[in-house]
Nucleic acid binder design. Structure first.
Length: 1045
RNA sequence: GCCCGGAUGGUGGAAUUGGUAGACACGUUGGACUUAAAAUCCAAUGGCCAGCAAUGGCCGUGCGGGUUCAAGUCCCGCUCCGGGUACCA
């Protein structure tokens, strides 16, 4: 019978405490926040989670815990902290599930959100849940649609370097046409005011479309037939969809795009103003991909057309020996000579239909065709051939290049492959010109001296570039130009579960809905699939048209639409009249600290900055950059456990071989004997005997098969069932002995079929591990790398009769760090841990694991240490009968020193987001206070405030036990006092020639001379001086003393 | 290929500006308490060598060089691992 006794009673009851305080915070709205002009604001934001069906695993809350600690800390410092949470609720998984089951994605999403919320609530976050937003809520997406309309009604004026209303552009067109305009656009034709006025409405709309920041155009897209949708570049991985892994092909389609390229330079410049990791800024810089160079016009022989190329190296023009057009280039067909038409046609067709995947896997394959046409090199009038090749991309620059094989590795390879001349135009300083025919690779010289280059010969590269651009501009053959890699963002998805576009079509042209009609609600459909004619799911909706009967847009917006401006809506989430009020925006301004994963570096973090800059141009937001400081939290990886399943056939062969090798049975055997395509386990020529080890099932088949072979070759077979070896190896060896002696042995097979139970070998049984296959085992069945055998047998029916080979009665599992995933059985779910150890322990442990930003493996074992710490802390406040035991006495010097040392460390480390070392500091503090047997109120009270951001439930509970009301969350963070920490002496490490030899305690204010004297007189010094005079003594106050002998 | 990040005990990690390498914790081993277990507490714990012992010595932060009185930290050259990106003219 189980008799509970006193010592078994729970002293620290986390389950009760945590429930109590979570309820308290929620009922008292402790973390509800409103604009308060008396307090400074601080905005802490976590990246919007997509609520997946699997719920949270221990990796997800890492960033949330860190941001929660920081938020609570800032609140203790007196800031008015905005710390909201919401959901990026549109997403493919819910839609995919809808397609499969017919469940409306809203239902699935709602369910998942509920689960997320429950899990988050149990961790004790200080979110202001009154501000929660979710992207699929019409009250929210109304403003996503609203922003889209503003984008549609805007164009980018390069002269003012900002977005302006399209009305102003229409006015300008009426006054002076587009000749004087500097705009970010896709308009090529120049027209006058009169020409503009003569256009009909449709024509005018078509022109305007080339200027709008949200525009419709034919775009080469990543079309995924299996999903029936277009994917963004970052949703495609190696030619397959990132979600689902379906093949993706290139296709020309009419799509909405956002003219984000207009903001390329501002997005680049803005990086200088924000406090992000340099590496992340670098990722964005690369993505924006600014390159400076020149556009150069090449005339064509026999045509009036001009081919414009972009080059970063105009100085190498004299080395341009051919040109290359992208297969999609508009002039390809026109300039191809008659005799080459079929070849070029074939090539272009092949290249266009090549999937992204083929291109990637065949990067090094050089392909191309000569068009038969020639361009004229503008600097020297030389005729150079024009080729078509798919290494030139239609989407970058002008889709045409001048090729300088001597100084560009791709051009070099191409020229070599097709035997095109190579001319050197740059040489290294101090080196001589050499014959490019002898080169192995191009000389991609960013520095050097120009040669063979007309009037720039002798200049260095930098001067050459400048001089060439100047010459091109003077002769109207080109101009200096800056190019960006950043492409406009495709904004259409052929999907159901997304924001509908607030757009209708009249005469085939798109028009925005009136703002009063927003939100345009997502309609119901009978199926979540494209229509038979290939239209998006919204085409299935009944009456999908305006009041006037105009058809509405059937595409929906992509995932990043809703997440690009959510941080703004949090400022004023319930506002029915506008996105957010001016007052709210001017108070909260932008996000002070943004926490999230680094996978958003080129997606969300660029789109959101663009979105914000646009609203800034409109005058709606007061800060140009949305996220002042950003930290990427590292991923928590899984720690997989393995059991080792014995490959019995391998092992049995090994056992038999050990018994028969080296003539142990009197005759020579060979292993893995081959005869033609046949292979046998063991063969003895002497005995004319073949041994085969097999499972019963296979033996039956083989017996039949080998009979003719045995007769033909005059050999005998002995078939050995695995089961027999497992039962008794000696018996089997005896049978082999008999078989060797016997002269006439029929193919021997007569066994009832017996099942062999799976056998698992403990990792420390080293001699057997080589015969095993590792299998992932559920980490919940393993504790401290020791397998729970009973639980393992129940885990899967096929393991019910498993047998184990162990040492010391323990089954030791192996482990490896891998991605956390269901299939690897290494997913750790926070709920179980919180149940067992409590949210405070969980929070502390997630932080204790290591630096926030590094990737680190999850190891449940270590959580015990943090749990012990919390209970040890608890015991500072209570006696062994769990009665509060607090002394009102004055603290001692030592106690004050421990406290203030901790305050200093905790404050310091949190400011540099070093949460793991803060937890260590708490442990050291509690260890030291325990050693001092300290129970003084003046020490233990401030300690709780320090701890409260990290372990808020425990801190609240103890705070209230100490007699305080209400919440500890608003108590001022303690300051440390230098006087308590200050020491009078320091124990100097004394080294000789850099090697630590002994320690010496000296007063802090000692002079250099006195210190030197003290060292030389010190007890240990003589030994190391060995009678010699020291050459030099280095004395670094409060650090070290080093004697050089 | 290019760009970025990293490598410290059996494990996670600490060492903030070059100044006592391995804090704190896990694990392991031994001990105390207990009928027993759990919990708790105490001690040891980078490697090698010498010694009965206290103790002492040598080596040691991926590898090879360098700068310095002093290097995990700075410089040069590599190796390996992780991530991003991909014909960007």
């Amino acid at each position: 019978m189980h008799i509970p006794n006193k010592t078994q009673r729970m002293d620290y009851n986390h389950q009760e405490i945590e429930k109590k305080w979570q309820k308290y915070w929620s009922e008292n709205k402790t973390f509800h926040v409103e604009i308060d002009h008396k307090k400074p604001k601080y905005y802490v934001l976590d990246m919007f989670p997509y609520p997946s069906g699997a719920g949270l695993h221990v990796g997800h809350p890492l960033g949330y815990i860190a941001s929660d600690i920081y938020s609570r800390y800032k609140k203790h410092l007196g800031f008015n902290v905005l710390h909201p949470m919401g959901y990026d609720a549109y997403g493919l998984p819910a839609e995919q599930y809808a397609i499969q089951t017919g469940t409306h994605p809203a239902v699935t999403t709602e369910k998942n959100i509920k689960r997320y919320r429950e899990q988050m609530d149990r961790i004790g976050f200080s979110y202001d849940w009154d501000r929660q937003v979710q992207t699929c809520d019409p009250d929210y997406y109304k403003w996503t649609q609203w922003t889209f309309i503003q984008l549609f009604k805007s164009w980018y004026n390069k002269k003012t370097d900002k977005a302006e209303g399209i009305d102003k552009l229409i006015e300008l067109f009426g006054e002076e046409g587009n000749g004087n305009l500097e705009a970010a656009c896709s308009q090529e034709e120049v027209f006058s005011a009169d020409e503009w006025k003569q256009m009909n409405e449709k024509q005018q709309q078509e022109v305007l479309m080339n200027y709008r920041l949200a525009y419709l155009s034919n775009t080469m897209v990543n079309w995924c037939p299996a999903l029936g949708t277009v994917l963004a570049n970052d949703e495609v991985k190696d030619g397959f969809s990132e979600r689902g892994g379906h093949p993706v092909e290139r296709k020309l389609m009419k799509q909405w795009s956002l003219r984000i390229s207009a903001y390329a330079q501002r997005l680049l410049d803005g990086l200088e103003k924000i406090d992000w990791f340099e590496s992340l800024k670098e990722v964005q810089r690369n993505w924006i991909g600014r390159s400076e160079g020149a556009s150069v016009e090449f005339n064509l022989e026999g045509f009036d057309d001009v081919i414009v190329v972009f080059t970063t190296r105009p100085d190498t023009l004299w080395g341009a020996t051919f040109m290359v057009l992208a297969p999609e280039h508009e002039l390809v067909e026109k300039i191809t000579s008659e005799d080459r038409k079929s070849k070029i046609g074939k090539y272009v067709n092949w290249a266009k239909n090549r999937s992204e995947r083929d291109r990637i896997s065949e990067v090094n394959k050089i392909t191309g065709e000569f068009t038969g046409a020639y361009g004229i090199n503008p600097v020297n009038g030389k005729k150079i051939p024009i080729w078509v090749a798919d290494y030139v991309l239609s989407g970058y620059g002008t889709g045409a290049i001048m090729a300088v094989p001597a100084h560009d590795s791709r051009d070099f390879k191409f020229a070599r492959h097709f035997n095109i001349p190579i001319v050197q135009v740059v040489k290294k300083e101090g080196e001589e010109e050499s014959d490019p025919q002898t080169w192995d690779d191009s000389y991609d010289a960013k520095e050097g001296v120009m040669i063979n280059s007309g009037f720039i010969t002798g200049m260095n590269v930098e001067e050459g570039i400048k001089a060439t651009i100047k010459w091109l501009e003077e002769n109207e053959l080109g101009e200096g130009r800056i190019n960006y890699r950043l492409r406009d963002a495709i904004f259409s998805r052929q999907r159901y579960w997304g924001e509908p576009f607030p757009i209708y079509y009249k005469d085939g042209m798109p028009y925005p809905l009136d703002e009063s009609e927003l939100p345009l609600r997502l309609p119901d459909v009978d199926k979540y699939l494209p229509t038979e004619s290939g239209e998006p799911p919204l085409a299935r909706a009944k009456d999908w048209k305006t009041k006037e009967g105009y058809p509405l847009e059937t595409n929906t917006m992509p995932g990043f639409a809703g997440s690009s401006g959510y941080y703004l809506r949090y400022m004023d989430p319930k506002n029915q009249n506008e996105y957010f009020s001016k007052e709210a925006n001017e108070y909260w301004r932008n996000v002070d600290l943004y926490l999230g994963g680094d996978e958003h570096g080129t997606g969300h973090l660029i789109y959101a900055r663009f979105w914000n800059m646009f609203l800034y141009d409109l005058g709606r937001v007061c800060e140009e950059e949305p996220f002042k400081k950003l930290i990427n939290q590292g991923k928590i990886q899984g720690r997989s456990s393995f059991v080792y399943r014995l490959n019995y056939e391998k092992y049995a062969e090994h056992l038999i071989w050990e018994a028969i090798k080296d003539k142990k049975l009197g005759v020579e055997f060979v292993r893995d004997f081959k005869d033609g395509h046949r292979q046998f386990d063991f063969y003895s020529r002497e005995a004319g005997l073949i041994l085969e080890i097999k499972s019963q099932k296979n033996l039956e088949k083989l017996a039949h098969y080998y009979k003719p072979y045995a007769r033909e070759k005059n050999v005998r077979f002995l078939f050995i069932p695995l089961y027999d070896i497992k039962e008794n190896v000696d018996h089997v060896v005896n049978r082999i002995k008999e078989a060797i002696k016997a002269d006439d042995l029929e193919i021997n097979f007569e066994h009832e079929i017996k099942k062999i139970n799976p056998v698992f070998v403990s990792k420390d049984v080293k001699e057997l591990i080589q015969f095993t296959t590792p299998i992932h085992v559920d980490i919940n069945l393993v504790e401290n790398d020791i397998l729970n055998i009973e639980a393992f047998k129940k885990w899967r029916p096929e393991f019910a009769d498993a047998e184990f080979i162990m040492k010391d009665d323990k089954y030791v599992c192996g482990w490896e760090v891998e991605k956390m995933s269901k299939s690897k059985h290494n997913v750790q779910n926070p709920d179980e841990l919180i149940e067992k150890y409590g949210a405070d322990t969980f929070r502390l442990y997630e932080m204790f694991l290591g630096p926030l930003e590094t990737h680190k493996p999850w190891d449940t074992q270590g959580i015990e240490g943090v749990y012990r710490f919390i209970r040890k802390l608890w015991r500072l406040y209570f006696d062994k009968d769990n009665n509060l035991n607090i002394s009102e006495d004055q603290p001692t010097k030592d106690e004050l020193k421990v406290l203030h040392k901790t305050i200093q460390k905790v404050r310091n480390d949190i400011e540099r987001f070093s949460f793991n070392t803060v937890v260590s500091a708490f442990m050291i503090c509690v260890n030291e206070l325990t050693d001092l047997k300290c129970n003084k109120r003046d020490i233990l009270e401030p300690l709780l405030v320090l701890l409260s951001p990290y372990a808020p439930h425990t801190a609240e509970e103890l705070w209230s036990k100490l007699g305080h009301r209400p919440s500890i969350a608003i108590i001022a963070f303690p300051d440390y006092k230098e006087e308590y920490i200050k020491e009078n002496t320091f124990e100097y490490p004394v080294s000789f020639n850099g090697k630590l030899r002994f320690k010496l305690e000296l007063p802090l204010d000692i002079s250099k001379e006195d210190a030197e004297k003290a060292v030389l007189q010190a007890e240990g010094a003589q030994k190391w001086l060995a009678g010699k005079q020291p050459k030099k003594i280095i004395f670094v106050p409060k650090r070290i003393i080093n004697v050089v002998v």
